[in-house]
Design a protein around this nucleic acid. Sequence first.
DNA 1: ACTAGACCTGAAGCGTACTCAAGGTTTTAA
DNA 2: TTAAAACCTTGAGTACGCTTCAGGTCTAGT
Lengths: 122, 122
Amino acid sequence: MTLSIGDAAVQAGISIHTLHYYEREGLLQIERSSSGHRRYSSGDLEWIGILTCLRETGMPIRTMREFARLVQQDSSNIPQRIEILKTHRLEVLAHLKSLQHNLEHVEYKIDYYEKVLVQPMD
Amino acid sequence: MTLSIGDAAVQAGISIHTLHYYEREGLLQIERSSSGHRRYSSGDLEWIGILTCLRETGMPIRTMREFARLVQQDSSNIPQRIEILKTHRLEVLAHLKSLQHNLEHVEYKIDYYEKVLVQPMD
DNA sequence: ACTAGACCTGAAGCGTACTCAAGGTTTTAA
DNA sequence: TTAAAACCTTGAGTACGCTTCAGGTCTAGT
């Protein structure tokens, strides 16, 4: 069973244009029907899921391309794939920490304003 | 005591160009010396800290501009300021949740590859 | 007094990741 | 069978947030 690009886009929660773009950027290689229309296999969908996951955690396209290139080769480069993912993991953790820290600042500011509302300073 | 733009940029951990840009975008209004050079007060630095915090948590410039506009007015709009911050807080929380979820996916993938390394499937 | 370095303005340029347009072909449902 | 809807490609356009450039003025250290 394969899906059309429209259905694949809905499945992946991204736009058809983004799927085209990812293919142009070398992140994807999709089989075609005899007429040239793309057919997405369940393996394709799974891979798109990984791409989406990496993208949503802030990995730049060029790094995703590098990762995709490794995956498209044989399995001898699994250490390099792990390396990319581990580096990315650390970056995501750092980003999470920064977000949590800054979130506290925002919450402090909210509390401050709410106190001012209850007991105006003028 | 006031700081030059160079020192202020170092304090805030952002570039002089970004400070110029924020001023152009209406996020900042900085006093000038008689010759036209900017002088940053400690209040300015504090405000830049808030801007940086909002920016690093993903608030778009246009929303920051709206918030800045409210802060520049009188204190009668504190409820609107709280509204903006609370909305932003929810967005940051959603982003955090999404990141954490996707991070799990990345970690799962790392584990998967490490298992494959130990016990190749071919 | 001199000069290197910092600052000023206005405008143009850049990197990233999409997103849309145009003009043509294929599929699908009535 | 036919017409709307979906798909194709190439190439241009957009949104966002800076960042750099050019050409001039100001300041600070010696």
